[in-house]
C-alpha cells in the first residue's frame, strides 16, 4: 500500500446520499407531464400545443433573463412552471397571453421572492391568477374538445384552431370558434351533470390539461412511487373533497353535486397532484401535509358550492400556500431528548 491509499477521508454528515438532485427531480416531473400534454393535444389539437409551447417559452425566457449565470434554465424548474401554466389555460387564448402568463409566473411568482426555493406561492398559479384577473373573458371561454358534436350535426375537427390563438399582441380575437361550458359551469349555472366516465377519460371541455384525470393520476402515481411528491398531499386533498362533498350532497342532493363529479371535474386532479405538491410551497412536516391538503380540499368544495365562480382549485391552493409557514411552525416535531413543555419554556425565554 502506498501512503496515498491510506488517506483518511473526513466528511460531514449525511454519509448516505440518494442520487437525486434538483434537475433530476424537475426533469422527471416534466417527463411524467408528457402524457398529459399528449392527451391535451389530442383533445384540443394544435391550439393546445401552441398554448403550452408558448407558455413554456415565456417562462424559460424570463428565467434566462432574470437568473443570469451560464445556463440558468438547466434545472428545469422554469420548464415545469411553463408546462403547468400552459396546462391550466383554455386552448383558445391568444398566444401572447400565454407568453405573458409565463413571464408573470417567473418574474412575479418566483424571482421577486429571490428565485427557486424562495417563493411563497406556486409560480404557475400566480401567472394564472394574473391572467384570470386581467383577461376574465378570454380565460373563461372554453373551446370544445376534438370529436364534440356541433350544432350543425358535424363534430369538432382535430386540426381546427380552438380560438383566436394567433391574435396580435395586446389584441383580442375575432376568430369564430365553437365554445361551450365546462362540466363545472354546466352544473353550476345550468344544472346539467356530465357523466363521470367522460370526466375520467377527458373528452370534456375545460383547460388544456385539466381534462383527463386518468393521465394525471398515472403521472402522479409514478412521482409518488419515486418519492418526488408527498403522496399525503394529493390523498388528503382528494379525501377532503370526497368526504365533504358526499356529506353535503347527502344533505341537499338536488342542488349540490356528489363526490364522483367533484373529484373528476375541473382542475382538481391537476391541482392536487402537480400544483399543491410543489416542494417549495408545501409544508415540510407530515402532519402539515395532511392539514394543508385537507385545507385545499375544503376550500375547493366551499368555493365550488357557494362561491361566485364554478371552479376554485387555483384560489384554494394559493390561499393554502400562504398558510404553509404557519402550518410548518405549528407542526414542528419534538426534538429528540426534549419535551413539549421545555420547548415552550425555551421559546418563552428567547
Amino acid at each position: 500500500m502506498t501512503p496515498a491509499d491510506r488517506t483518511l477521508e473526513l466528511a460531514a454528515s449525511p454519509h448516505l446520499k440518494a442520487p437525486d438532485s434538483t434537475p433530476r427531480i424537475m426533469w422527471t416531473v416534466v417527463a411524467t407531464l408528457i402524457p398529459v400534454v399528449v392527451g391535451a393535444v389530442w383533445a384540443f389539437g394544435p391550439s393546445a400545443a401552441l398554448v403550452i409551447g408558448v407558455a413554456v417559452a415565456g417562462a424559460v425566457g424570463t428565467e434566462r433573463l432574470l437568473a443570469g449565470g451560464p445556463d440558468p434554465v438547466r434545472d428545469g424548474s422554469a420548464v415545469i412552471t411553463g408546462l403547468l401554466l400552459g396546462l391550466t389555460l383554455p386552448a383558445g387564448v391568444p398566444l401572447w397571453m400565454a407568453a405573458l402568463g409565463g413571464a408573470v409566473s417567473i418574474a412575479l411568482g418566483k424571482w421577486v421572492f429571490g428565485g427557486l426555493g424562495q417563493n411563497v406561492f406556486n409560480p404557475a398559479l400566480v401567472g394564472r391568477a394574473f391572467l384570470q384577473a386581467a383577461f376574465p373573458a378570454a380565460m373563461t371561454t372554453w373551446p370544445l374538445p376534438t370529436g364534440a358534436a356541433l350544432p350543425d350535426g358535424g363534430s369538432v375537427a382535430w386540426a381546427a384552431l380552438r380560438g383566436p390563438n394567433l391574435a396580435l399582441p395586446l389584441m383580442g380575437g375575432s376568430v369564430d370558434a365553437v365554445t361551450g361550458a365546462t362540466p363545472l359551469g354546466l352544473r353550476k349555472f345550468e344544472g346539467v351533470e356530465t357523466p363521470v366516465a367522460d370526466l375520467f377519460i377527458g373528452s370534456i371541455g375545460g383547460s388544456v390539461g385539466e381534462t383527463s384525470a386518468l393521465l394525471i393520476l398515472l403521472g402522479g402515481g409514478y412521482l409518488a412511487f419515486r418519492g418526488y411528491l408527498d403522496w399525503r398531499i394529493p390523498v388528503s386533498v382528494l379525501l377532503a373533497v370526497a368526504v365533504l362533498s358526499s356529506a353535503l350532497h347527502a344533505l341537499r342532493p338536488d342542488t349540490l353535486p356528489g363526490a364522483p363529479f367533484m373529484l373528476f371535474s375541473g382542475g382538481l386532479m391537476l391541482g392536487a397532484v402537480y400544483m399543491a405538491t410543489d416542494m417549495v410551497t408545501s409544508p415540510v412536516t407530515r402532519a402539515g401535509a395532511w392539514i394543508y391538503g385537507a385545507g385545499i380540499g375544503a376550500l375547493v368544495v366551499i368555493i365550488r358550492y357557494w362561491g361566485g365562480l364554478p371552479e376554485g382549485v387555483m384560489y384554494a391552493i394559493l390561499l393554502m400556500n400562504a398558510m404553509v409557514p404557519f402550518i410548518d411552525r405549528a407542526t414542528q416535531p419534538r426534538v429528540f431528548g426534549t419535551s413539549r413543555r421545555n420547548r415552550r419554556e425555551r421559546e418563552a425565554t428567547t
Binding site: F130, A133, A134, F135, P136, A167, L170, M171, G172
Partner: peptide, 16 residues
C-alpha cells in the same frame, strides 16, 4: 392607442 381590437388588462385599472 391600439385601435378597436385591443384586449384591456382589466386587472391594471383595479386596485391590484
Amino acid at each position: 392607442l391600439f385601435g378597436s381590437g385591443f384586449e384591456p388588462w382589466i386587472v391594471m385599472i383595479l386596485p391590484p
